[in-house]
Every structure is written in structure tokens, then in C-alpha cells.
Amino acid sequence: MRDRYYSIGRGPELIFGVFLFGIGLIAAIYGLRYGLGQLNDIGPGAFPLGLGIAMMILSALAMKEAGADDPVSRRLTPAFFYLPGIIIWSLLIEGAGLVIATLALIVMCSFAEDELDLKRALLLGLILAAVGYVVFILSFGLTFNLIGDWF
């Protein structure tokens, strides 16, 4: 059930197009606010305004193309485990330290697969934390805590 492939069609692409259009609109509005300046002394807002307008035109043109190609078939489950995994890693890295953060990340990632192999995930996490310690902390002198301040 996990390994479901979704056909990504025209609808979602249009939503993405609207998102891009929105970025263009915001850039243009902020551009007007930042000040356009004079022709011989262009202000900080002129470029954002121009780019915002260009973005709106191009995203509209791109939306006309939406659905022109055959839709791709993709499974979306991995993204919902990998991305939170990264967030969890970054929330844990300062307080809990490299070991726990890495274990949490790798276990999260391993949930993305059909068969959960917890033993392999823990082993991989420990190896990565150890290698990370040797490479990044010992040889490159990065400022990581192996075990964080929480303990």
C-alpha cells in the first residue's frame, strides 16, 4: 500500500504555476515599496518590480503549457519521511548531539521503505555518526557536539 505511484497531471502543475505567479506578484509589490528611483539612479525596487512582472508573464505562459507532456508517475511517500527526518535532525543536533540526531534521521528515512529494517537503520546511523565524528569533528574541527547539552 505504501508503494503507491501517483500520476502527476495537469491540476497540480497549474497549482504550482499559480504559486510562481504569486511569487512574481509579491516581488512586484515589494519592488514598488522599496522605491524605483530615477533613471540615472535606479532604486532598490526597480529590479524586483521588473523581475516580478517577468515572472508573472512567464508563469502564465508556462501554465498554458501545463499538461502538454505525458504525466509522470511518482511515489510521494519517501518525501514525507525524508523531509521531516531532516527537520528532526536539525532540531536535535544542538541539544541532543550528533549521535542521537543521526540515529533519528536514519530511522525516519528507513520508514520510507516498504519493509522496515530497523536493525540496519540503527547500524547505519551509528556508523554514520562515528564516521561523522572522525571526519568532521576530529579532522575538520567542526563545532558539533557528539552528545548534546541536554544530557
Binding site: 525524508y82 527526518g85 531532516i86 535532525w89 536539525s90 543536533i93 543521526t102 534521521l105 536514519i106 528515512c109 528507513s110 521503505e113 529494517d117 540496519r120 537503520a121 547505519l124 554514520l128 561523522g132 568532521f136 575538520f140 567542526l142 563545532t143 558539533f144
Partner: peptide, 20 residues
């Protein structure tokens, strides 16, 4: 299942290390 978690780990460490 090994390769991509490994890359993600390296990315996390790499991005974090730039400015801690």
C-alpha cells in the same frame, strides 16, 4: 535504503556546518 540516507546525512552536516 543505504545510499540515500547517507547522502541526506552528509547534506545535513554540510549545510549546518557552514554557519553552525
Amino acid at each position: 535504503q543505504v545510499l540515500y540516507p547517507l547522502i541526506i546525512f552528509l547534506i545535513c552536516v554540510g549545510v549546518f556546518s557552514v554557519n553552525s
